[in-house]
Every structure is written in structure tokens, then in C-alpha cells.
Design a protein around this nucleic acid. Structure first.
Length: 648
RNA sequence: GCUGCUGUAGCUCAGUGGUAGAGCACUCCCUUGGUAAGGGAGAGGUCGACAGUUCAAUCCUGUCCAGCAGCACCA
């Protein structure tokens, strides 16, 4: 038998027989290590203790101290343990797949009846039994025919299909947790007892399609989360509670920002407080766009189908459009219109009106465009995913040669805005050519390179999303990470040579001939609705002062102070601060509590002493201590604070 | 759109086959109180909509609408 050389993390190496397993290697180092071992890392690959090593390699034996492999194994083994528990309780349930995911795992089952929350408790209890039984994990590589026969005999038709989908040349690996068997890539732990019994929890059950295919029947997916110990699990639970407190739907109600109701699903009724945020944000964006060389336009909501046919939306996007039929008097047939789902075709109409010269390019045409899309009911989510929304949309009409410079200019523009709005964690994704596409490979090469180069020129790295571009061109996506680590796609830039072609947009070049411009679809916030939702959650409702809908409440402590309260409110309003009086017959404690819960950044309390001295007692949101300031000083401070960041 | 769950007062929620209740909010009265809930009284609901079963439906059944979780979707 040939010898191989294994190199350990400390740089030492040892000779072993070829085909040695990490379990044997660990045993050769120390029996205690062999016991503690959970897996190995062989040449950077996560390796099961039972898998043979055939050639020279770098090897590290992993234990529960190694977070990444430990969590991966715990979660993956729990997926199997859960599936085993389910099949032990309900033997007729068919298993499908169960990968790890986020902080845990899920497993999809085919079962007639729905799993109930009580079932989850029963499954959890059974899982703990399995863990305590410390059943050994075994693995073998099987032939395709044997695996298929095995699953056919058991009636596990989903597994048969999965085996068939494994590419030629790849191992078909079978795993056993005790007597329970599953098809799995691995790696896995040594035995079920290595899973911490108190670090996991089944969270919920929901429907999911087999292999994500919506044309197939729906399975039931049970989700779980798992950590190395009870403490980490508790920490996760606490974080989830924090996230729930920030939910924009909850805060929107508490802060009286907006509401939605069933007569207008997916559309927002903005209340005065919410609309204040919206208009302040819009004012800010309008100033930014003006400075960056955009012109602003406004275009119709209800547009005849002829334009949508010309643009291609009628063919490709119709099921997402609100169709409006108008029965005009004496008309032979109804006029068919659609609410615009996007602004681009209308912007081309503006571009086409009057002959454009190369001197007009790049032409940056912006609109706070109200769009309506008939989104699938299941996609709606608060004000984040709606059917009626306003984009901070713009289309840059330019030449091929200008794409890169315009893209860089846009990235700089967007970066400045995100910084002003308090977002410093964001990344860029570049989506490249999809399988179904128009245009030559040379042109895709050129445009993809232009976008990538523009990112680098602006000083940003980007991640490539292979094949995720639109059929007509590649795109950049700008993804924000919020305060609790969630990602949100907001900004976007898409290169589109297709629509100018379809709608026959032209400009007169230097040579006197007609040429086709390219369009860059771009947005910074995405939609006001969504972005405001993100702002609310990012700041947990405590928006930056200049965006806070209610900025100051001036509260009387005794009714004798009412006159001065009004005077303070007027002085603040005179400098543009959103101030209101609270002269109600309530104690100051009551008022403080109510306005603090309402996330008002400043409460100015006024009693007899303040009236006497013409001062205010200042309480800032989130602080217990108060300070006394003169009327002039507080007015000056708040006047500065309410100034948007770009005007300071 | 699909699977499952939910829909009772402005909000958060309890409850029953014989047409409903709490706390907070609201209105009024008492209280003028110094930094996160002072006290009392009052008003407020076609129990999501429409059918069906029943002597009787908010409760049981069906359909629809909306919301929630996830999946699918998101040029």
C-alpha cells in the first residue's frame, strides 16, 4: 500500500497509508482527539471523519471549538435528525431535501395533513431522544442503480428523482443516522450525541415547492435554528425580538405614519406624520438631482395599450399591469389603457419630442414616477413591497462611449446620498448576461466591462451575479445592510439599448446622421415607500432629526405656563422646526412617557421656573437627564439640526 | 399565485350555538402635578363579506376578501 504525507496546521507532517480516514489520523495523534473530533478540513475542503484520503494533503482535525465547521455540522445533522424524527412519528411521510440555511436548517416533507405547532413540539422531543441515543453516523458511496432501487423499494419517489439529478461522475453518497437513512453529500458528525441538545429549536412550518418549481405540488417545510449552546440560542431569540420591535408595520402604527386597508391592498394611506418623512426625503432628492445635472419631468399614469405594445410591456409584463378599460360614448369598442408600471416608455416619449442632438447627451431625465404594478398577493409586505409606489427614477440617454463615465458619476451620486441618510454599509452586485438575451456577445462584453470599470473607478468592489442581468443588458444593484444585518436592494442601474430601439429614439450625431442612444435606467432609493420602510427599521423609528415627522413637543407642567408654551412653539416654527404644544391637563410624567413612546426627539418641558427665566427644560429622546437652555439657544440649536445634511 | 395560520371597539387581545368583554386610547368631571401611566364617570362593536346548516350563528360548513409566515415572483 502506498504512503501519503499529511501536513498539520502546525506545519509538521506525517506519513500514512493511502486511504486513511481523518478518524484514524485523529486516533494516531491522541485518543482524546479522536473522541472530540467532529470533522476534518482537507486541502480546504470540509471532510467527513469517515472519508478516505488518497493523496498528500493539508489536514486539520476540527472539534466543537471550530465555529464554522461545528455550526455547519450541528445544523446539517439536525436536519437529518429532524427528518428521522418525523418519519419515526409518521412513517408514511416522504422526505425530500434538508439543507442548512442562515442560522439553522429546513427540511421539506410530503405529507397529506398539515404539520401543526403541536406537532413541532412532538418532533422536538423525539429529536432530543435521538440525540441522547448517541447513534453512530455511517456513510457509504453507492452506485446510481443501487440507490435508485433502494429508494424505489421504499417508495421515496422524491429521492429517486434527486438521485437521477446527481451529475455523472459525482459520488452518490448514502448516510445513516442509526438505522435511519438519507441521501446526502455530507459531511456529518460521528454520532448524534455530538449535537448539543439544548441549542436548537423548531421555529415554523410553511409551504415550499419541490426544487423551487411552482408548477409542482407544494411540500411542507419545517424550519429550525441551531447553535452550539443554549446561550447562543437565547441571544438569537433576543435578536429576533429586537427585529420585531423595529418592524416598520408596527412602528408605522405606533408613530401614526400610515395605514393600509383592504379596499386598496398594497397601497399606502400616508398620514401627516409619514407624509412629512416622504416630502422631506423627496425635497432632498430633488435638490441632489438638480445639482447632479438632472432635469425633472412628469408623465401620465394612464396610458393607452398602444404604447405598451410598442415598448414590449404588453407582451412581457401584462399580468403585472393594472388594465383600465374606458367605455367612451359612441365608441365601437372600449379604449384599453394600463396604469404605468414603469416610467421608461413615457420618458422616451419626452426624449422623442423634438429632435435631439449629440450635444444634448448625456440627457439625465428624472421623475418621481408613480407606478402601479399588480404584484402577486403573496408578495405584498407592508410598505416594502406594494402595488402603488413612487420611484426616484431617472433615465440617462447617452452614447455607448458615455456609459462608463455616467455609471461612475451615478455611483458617486448614490454614495453621497446613502452617506447623508446614514447608511455606510452597502455593496454592489453586477448582474451579467442571462441565457435568454438580445444583442451580440461583443456588445455584452463591452457593456459589462464598462460597468465593472466604473465601479473600480469610483473605488468600489463588486460581486458578480452570473446570468442575473435583464435580457437586454447587464445591471448594477446596490444593496444596503441595515442595523440588524438584513440586506435590502435599493439602488440600481441597468443598461438598456433595447427600449430606444423599440420606441425609435434617435439623436443627430456630429456626422449629421441619426444614431440610437442607449438608456441607463437608474434609481437611488428605489421607491420612496420601500426606502422609508428601511429607514424606519434601520433607525428603529428614531429617524435623524431633519427627517423626524414630529421633532419637538413643548409640554406645560402647570397651566400657568401655557402662554409661554405657545411662544416657544411659535419661535420654533418660525425657523422651520416642526413643533407642537402639549397643554393638556396631564402630569408631566404622563406627557414624557407618551411622547417618548411616540419617538419625538425633543421634549421641552415648561413650568413656573422656566416661564420666569424664559428658559426650557430639554429632554432628548433616549436620555434620562435633562438640561436647561435659554429660548434663544434651543431655537438656534434646533434650527441647525432641522437643516438637511446637504444644506448645512 | 401556492401551502398553512389569522380576522371581535381606534390599538392590543379575551370569549360564547341563545346577537359580547378587558386594558390602553377617546369624551366629561376632579386634580396644577417637575421629567416614562393621578383619580372618577361616560361613550364606543352589523364579532372581515356573502351564502348554507340550525328554532337560533360572532361561534359550525362553504365561497370570497384582507393580513401574517414561507415558497414562487420581483425586465
Amino acid at each position: 500500500m502506498s504512503q501519503i504525507s499529511l501536513t498539520f496546521p502546525d506545519g509538521n507532517s506525517r506519513e500514512y497509508d493511502a486511504g486513511v480516514t481523518p478518524a484514524q489520523v485523529a486516533e494516531s495523534i491522541a485518543p482524546s482527539l479522536a473522541k472530540k473530533a467532529i470533522s476534518a478540513t482537507v486541502n480546504g475542503e470540509h471532510w467527513d471523519l469517515q472519508w478516505p484520503i488518497d493523496g498528500d494533503a493539508k489536514i486539520a482535525i476540527n472539534t466543537m471549538q471550530d465555529d464554522e465547521p461545528a455550526l455547519e455540522l450541528i445544523r446539517h445533522d439536525l436536519a437529518h435528525i429532524m427528518a428521522r424524527a418525523v418519519q419515526e412519528i409518521w412513517p408514511d411521510v416522504k422526505v425530500t431535501i434538508g439543507p442548512i440555511r442562515d442560522n439553522g436548517w429546513f427540511y421539506d416533507f410530503d405529507r397529506e395533513e398539515a404539520f401543526t405547532p403541536e406537532d413541532l413540539g412532538q418532533i422536538e422531543a423525539k429529536m432530543k431522544e435521538i440525540i441522547n441515543a448517541r447513534d453512530a453516523v455511517k456513510t457509504e458511496v453507492w452506485s446510481r442503480d443501487d440507490a435508485i432501487k433502494f429508494y424505489e423499494d421504499r417508495g421515496e419517489n422524491y429521492k429517486v428523482e434527486l438521485v437521477n439529478r446527481i451529475p455523472e461522475g459525482e459520488d452518490i453518497r448514502m448516510y445513516w443516522h442509526g438505522d435511519w437513512q438519507d441521501l446526502c453529500r455530507g459531511p456529518h458528525l460521528q454520532h448524534t450525541g455530538q449535537v448539543p441538545a439544548d441549542g436548537f429549536k423548531l421555529t415554523h412550518v410553511a409551504g415550499a415547492y419541490f426544487l423551487g418549481d411552482s408548477s409542482r405540488p407544494m411540500l411542507q417545510r419545517i424550519y429550525g435554528v441551531a447553535f452550539k449552546n443554549r446561550k447562543d440560542l437565547k441571544a438569537w431569540e433576543t435578536m429576533m425580538e429586537e427585529a420585531a420591535k423595529r418592524d416598520h408595520r408596527k412602528l408605522g402604527k405606533e408613530m401614526d405614519l400610515f395605514h393600509m386597508q383592504e379596499e386598496a391592498p398594497g397601497q399606502v394611506f400616508w398620514h401627516p406624520n409619514g407624509w412629512t418623512i416622504y416630502t422631506k426625503l423627496q425635497d432632498y432628492m430633488r435638490r441632489q438631482q438638480y445639482r447632479d445635472g438632472y432635469v425633472e419631468v412628469n408623465t401620465p399614469q394612464v396610458v393607452n395599450r398602444k404604447l405598451w405594445e410598442a415598448s414590449g410591456h404588453w407582451e412581457n409584463y401584462q399580468e403585472n399591469m393594472f388594465i383600465v378599460e374606458v367605455d367612451e360614448d359612441h365608441a365601437r369598442e372600449k379604449t384599453v389603457n394600463a396604469l404605468k408600471p414603469m416610467n421608461c416608455p413615457c420618458h422616451v416619449q419626452v426624449f422623442n419630442h423634438g429632435l435631439k442632438s449629440y450635444r444634448d447627451l448625456p440627457l439625465r431625465m428624472a421623475e418621481f414616477g408613480s407606478c402601479n404594478r399588480y404584484e402577486p398577493s403573496g408578495a405584498l409586505h407592508g410598505i416594502m413591497r406594494v402595488r402603488g409606489f413612487t420611484q426616484d427614477d431617472a433615465h440617462i440617454f447617452c452614447t455607448d462611449d458615455q456609459i462608463e463615465a455616467e455609471t461612475k458619476k451615478f455611483i458617486d451620486f448614490l454614495a453621497g446620498i446613502y452617506a447623508d441618510l446614514g447608511f455606510h454599509n452597502w455593496t454592489i452586485k453586477l448582474s451579467t448576461r442571462p441565457e435568454k438575451r438580445v444583442g451580440s456577445d461583443e456588445s455584452w462584453d463591452r457593456v459589462e466591462a464598462a460597468l465593472g470599470d466604473a465601479c473600480k473607478a469610483a473605488g468600489y468592489d463588486y460581486e458578480i451575479q452570473e446570468g442575473e442581468g435583464a435580457f437586454y443588458g447587464p445591471k448594477l444593484e446596490f444593496v444596503l445592510t441595515d442595523a440588524i444585518g438584513r440586506d435590502w436592494q435599493c439602488g440600481t442601474l441597468q443598461v438598456d439599448p433595447n427600449l430606444p430601439e423599440r420606441l425609435d429614439a434617435v439623436y443627430i450625431g456630429q456626422d449629421g446622421a441619426k444614431h440610437r442612444p442607449v438608456m441607463l435606467h437608474r434609481a437611488v432609493l428605489g421607491s420612496f415607500e420601500r426606502f422609508i420602510g428601511i429607514l424606519i427599521e434601520e433607525h428603529a423609528g428614531k429617524l435623524p432629526f431633519w427627517l423626524a415627522p414630529r421633532q419637538v413637543v413643548v409640554a406645560s407642567i402647570v397651566s400657568d405656563a401655557d402662554g409661554f408654551v405657545d411662544e416657544v412653539v411659535e419661535a420654533l416654527k418660525a425657523v422651520g422646526v416642526r413643533a407642537e404644544a402639549d397643554k393638556r391637563n396631564e402630569k408631566i410624567n404622563y406627557k414624557i412617557r407618551e411622547h417618548s413612546l411616540g419617538k419625538v426627539p425633543f421634549i421641552l418641558a415648561i413650568g413656573a421656573r422656566e416661564v420666569e427665566e424664559r428658559t426650557v427644560s430639554v429632554r432628548r429622546l433616549g436620555e434620562q437627564k435633562t438640561s436647561t437652555m435659554s429660548l434663544d439657544d434651543i431655537v438656534a440649536e434646533l434650527k441647525l439640526s432641522t437643516t438637511p445634511p446637504d444644506l448645512r
